[in-house]
Structure formats: structure tokens, C-alpha cells
Computed example of a mutant assay.
Amino acid sequence: MSIPRIAPYPVPTSLPVQSRVNWQPDPARAVLLVHDLQEYFLDFYDRGDAPVAPMLDRVRALHDACDGAGVPVVYTAQPTAQTPRQRGLLQEWWGPGVTAATDRAAIAGSVAPRAHDTVLTKWRYSAFAMTDLHDRMRQWGRDQLLITGVYAHIGCMATALDAFMRDIQPFMVADALADFSAADHAMALDYVTQRCGVVLASQACIDALAAPALPTSLDALRAELARIIGIPAAQVGLDDNPLHLGLDSIRLMSLVERWSAAGAAIGFVDLAERERVSDWWALLEARREAMP
């Protein structure tokens, strides 16, 4: 059995009933997941119609918002070569998948990963299964996952439930998802709302990410520095000088403005005169404690 041809349907404009929790996306805690937006999976839709066309626009807007807020972006993509053992039960359920269409394995160009993004090889429904996504989120000091992509009632919903069971707050971005049908799409949103997470619209997510916030851990600070410099987080050591790692005055000022807007009394000179990442963290902690 393979994926069926998917008829156009309108992107949901009304969200499920009020969630059981009042979680809000936090730019200091969140990671954006762009789930399986490979050409292969999108080929089952009319690419010029809803839900795919507006969904891709909203994923791109969310990506832009995450870049502006220092939020990591993670992509999943199924590999072009899978042995029967690697494919497992998916082979019986859906056939060979991307393996049978290797020329369609690329992520859609309009939402393609950027140089600083993470791309994970996807093996099962959940983005956590057989990947290091959870380890990466721990390293980044992140415990919220903003879920976009396809298919809402399969991999996206499975990932939301898996995140919940790992004490990661899942958010399904309702209008940045696509599914087999409007009914399947609505079912996925309703299930997450009732059982494991929060459903919200892309604009509400973007608005929440615009709120400035301080890094919540030393690892989160290292990750934020790595993103703004454009290097892997593993290259940011506690004794390293951020300026020697490549942080120029323009990007330093952007950090000052963001952290100041979050309520920390930090100036350009405060950071520039401190030579180690650990010293920056000590300053942030002291300013956080002094905040009203």
C-alpha cells in the first residue's frame, strides 16, 4: 500500500476547543521542527492549492521568525537508501517510500534548510525514533517543540505524543501542517489538544517568538552564540572568548538588544570586556536575579 493521491482541502481556520494547559511558545525554550517536507511526500498533493501552498508559506514565515529569535530549526528527511531491516514495518504499511523515488528526496526548495539548521535522517513516524533529536534538545537547553510539516495525523501527531512522554511540550502549528484530508487534519489537532499538547495558529506562534527572552541555561547560551556566529555548538567552550570565535560588533549588539529587551540590564561594554563564555553566563545569571 502506498500513500493515496490527496485532494485539495482548506487549511483549518478554527482551532479545537481550549487546551487543557496554558503553555505558550518561549523563544528561549523552543525548537522548530520541519517534518518530512520532501518533494516525494508533497507530490501526492496539488502543489498549487491548499493545504500545501499556504502551508509552505507559513513554514517559511515561522523559520524566519525562529532565525530572528535565536530558535533552532530541525528538519527530518527520510533517506534514499533503506535496507528492509531499516525500513521495518513501514515497508508493509506504505511500501518502499522515498527509496523508490530517490530523485524526489530533496526538501521543498521554498522551505529548504539554511546553513545553520539541523537535518536529521528520519526512520519512523516519530522524529525522536532512532535519531538524536532529544539529545540535541537537551544540549540546547530546550523543552518545547513547534511541529510543522506532513502528515499531521501520522508522523506529526506521533512526534507530538513522543515529545510529551519525554517531558517536552509539543505545539502543533495548525495552519503549517498538511494531511490526507480535512478530517484527518482535524482529528490530529483534536487529539493533541485533548491528550498531549497545544494547537495554535502560525501567527500566534510567530507573535510568541517575538517576545525577547534570556538563555535559560549555560548550554542554551552556548547554542545561541553558536547560531549567531554560525558554528556548531560543540565549538563554543566555556573558556572561549566569543569575540575570538567570530562574534562581531553588529551581532554582539543584536544580543545586547535582545537580552536588554528581555529585562536584563546588560550593555555592550558589559559583554565586550568579559573574555569567557562562562563569564557571560555569570553576568546573565546576576542580571536575571536582579530583574524585578
Rank of each mutant, 00 (worst) to 15 (best):
T148C: 12
L33M: 15
L145E: 09
D279S: 14
A127C: 10
R222S: 07
E285N: 08
R47I: 14
P292M: 08
I250R: 09
V256C: 05
A211S: 11
L252F: 01
A61V: 03
T159M: 12
A282E: 15
R20F: 13
V119K: 14
L225S: 00
L247N: 01
R142F: 07
P212L: 03
D270Q: 07
L200S: 02
A208D: 12
W259T: 04
L247Q: 00
M137L: 12
M157P: 05
L271M: 12
W23T: 06
R104V: 01
D279T: 04
R58M: 07
G246Q: 03
A264P: 07
S19E: 08
L245M: 02
R60W: 03
W93I: 14
Y151C: 14
D103Y: 02
I250C: 01
R47D: 03
V277L: 02
V256E: 00
L161S: 14
V74M: 02
P54G: 03
A182C: 01
P4D: 06
G48H: 15
I266D: 04
L37P: 05
R60G: 08
Y40P: 05
R138Y: 05
V192K: 10
P54F: 10
G141C: 05
D239S: 13
A108I: 08
A115K: 12
L243W: 04
F164N: 13
S202T: 13
Q18V: 14
T102I: 09
G109N: 08
I6P: 01
L133Q: 08
F128V: 04
D167P: 08
S2P: 12
A186H: 14
P232R: 04
A265H: 12
R136I: 14
G267M: 00
V198Q: 15
L120F: 12
G246W: 02
P170M: 09
F41Q: 08
A223T: 06
L161C: 13
W123H: 11
P10M: 02
A65E: 04
D175L: 05
A188R: 08
S260A: 10
H244C: 06
M55V: 14
H63A: 14
A183T: 13
R274Y: 07
L209D: 00
T76Y: 09
L177H: 09
Q203S: 12
V73M: 02
G97W: 00
I6T: 03
A234C: 07
S126E: 09
V150F: 12
P96M: 04
D207W: 00
A223C: 09
L245K: 00
A226I: 03
I266N: 02
Q169Y: 06
D26L: 06
M253D: 02
C156H: 08
A272T: 00
R20K: 13
I250S: 09
L255P: 03
C205K: 07
V59Q: 01
L33V: 07
H35L: 11
